[in-house]
């Protein structure tokens, strides 16, 4: 039985017919075909599906779609600027060599962006905490942390 929800998706008011059994990730990837948000495990254990809801980074694979009602959701597709140029955090990931296979990267960017949106100059400890739920197998995390630091002005 479908229900209607209204929410903000990447700054646009969105009204959707949804099935309460969907997760937010299902809505994004399967229904809206916004495939930038990745499913790495489906159980909230890898962070690849991270999106920002009302300022907090959360796992969209565990997020009941009905819970989105009235909230503001930002996905990786909403991070770049309107003219298509990269957000500073995205540019930093590019410039610092933080990207390899890239599958974890949208989640990494959402987690770190949620931090940077709240704190201009987070400490290295806070940077690591922000991505400690985001698994990456390629990079050893070094350049990912470097990239976030470079935006945070903490270098």
């Amino acid at each position: 039985m479908k229900k209607e929800i209204t929410f903000t998706l990447n700054k646009e008011k969105t009204i959707m017919e949804v099935d309460p059994q969907w997760t937010l990730l299902h809505l994004l990837r399967e229904v809206l075909e916004m495939t930038g948000t990745k499913e790495g495990c489906g159980y909230g254990e890898c962070g690849a599906c991270t999106v920002i809801i009302d300022g907090e980074a959360v796992n969209s694979c565990l997020y009941p779609v009905m819970e989105v009602e009235g909230r503001s959701v930002m996905t990786i597709e909403g991070v770049a600027l309107k003219d298509g140029s990269l957000d500073p955090i995205q540019q930093a990931f590019v410039d610092e060599g933080a990207v390899q296979c890239g599958f974890c990267i949208p989640g990494m960017i959402m987690s770190s962006k949620a931090l940077l949106d709240k704190k201009d100059k987070p400490t290295e400890e806070e940077i690591k905490e922000s991505i400690e739920g985001n698994l990456c197998r390629c990079t050893g995390y070094v350049k990912i942390v470097d990239a976030i630091k470079s935006v945070a002005g903490g270098r």
Partner: peptide, 9 residues
């Protein structure tokens, strides 16, 4: 507890 994304939810 777990990770920040889980702790936020």
């Amino acid at each position: 507890v777990a990770s920040p994304t889980i702790a936020a939810m």
